[in-house]
């Protein structure tokens, strides 16, 4: 058996050829969207890079960074990426048990919500310490970048919730599986952006 890969992410070679090609083209279309989204994030990173020394009278990067919280958020998001992988596996190989995929998706959703909770807690803490977005160019750039990612994760959580309802109502119909494949790409993509954020914003910031 030589599995044919038609699109990024886990392919489902057991569905009929024509249906698989259609799913392949919609997943590839979503991949194009993700690449343009990557461009948006890359430019927000560039803006952050040009503003990182523009602290004005506000706090410096090292005074803003909370490393233990960044580590916690990194762990939560990485764990959620892995559990989404397990959900994709369950969808592909244990399709006769939709409950298994749903269970892993629920775990992923909880980890995603925990990540958002930790991030919001961090941002509120910054605000209370006087590191609000309007304080300096540096803080504006930092909040824009981090909140843009957080907004994506929140959208992903909403999408996950919708998919859990769809699995419950429609079962693992081919549309549902195809949507879940796109959501998987979106979720793994957000974890890649987070690698950039914790490296550039948190770890680099702690030493600036």
């Amino acid at each position: 058996m030589s599995p044919r890969h038609l699109h990024p992410g886990l392919n489902h070679p057991r569905s009929p050829e024509a249906e698989q090609a259609e799913v392949g083209s919609s997943v590839f279309g979503f991949w194009i969207f993700l690449m343009s989204d990557a461009l948006v994030f890359a430019l927000l990173f560039a803006v952050y890079g040009t503003q990182v020394h523009a602290t004005g009278s506000g706090p410096h990067p090292a005074q803003v960074v909370n490393l233990p919280s960044a580590l916690l958020q990194t762990g939560l998001l990485l764990a959620s990426s892995y559990t989404f992988g397990l959900a994709s596996l369950a969808l592909k190989f244990k399709a006769e048990r939709p409950g298994l995929a749903s269970a892993w998706l629920c775990v992923t959703l909880l980890l995603g919500l925990a990540f958002l909770g930790a991030e919001v807690h961090d941002l509120v803490d910054l605000y209370q310490r006087g590191a609000a977005p309007q304080r300096s160019g540096f803080l504006s750039a930092l909040h824009t970048l981090v909140c843009m990612h957080g907004l994506h994760v929140a959208t992903g959580c909403l999408w996950l919730l919708v998919m859990l309802v769809q699995i419950r109502v429609m079962g693992l119909a081919s549309e549902v599986t195809s949507r879940l494949m796109r959501l998987a790409l979106f979720w793994h993509f957000l974890d890649i952006i987070w690698v950039g954020i914790f490296t550039v914003v948190y770890l680099q910031g702690a030493r600036l």
Partner: peptide, 9 residues
């Protein structure tokens, strides 16, 4: 690693 292992590129 993420591209290779999670996105299967």
């Amino acid at each position: 690693v993420h591209f290779r292992c999670f996105l299967h590129i």
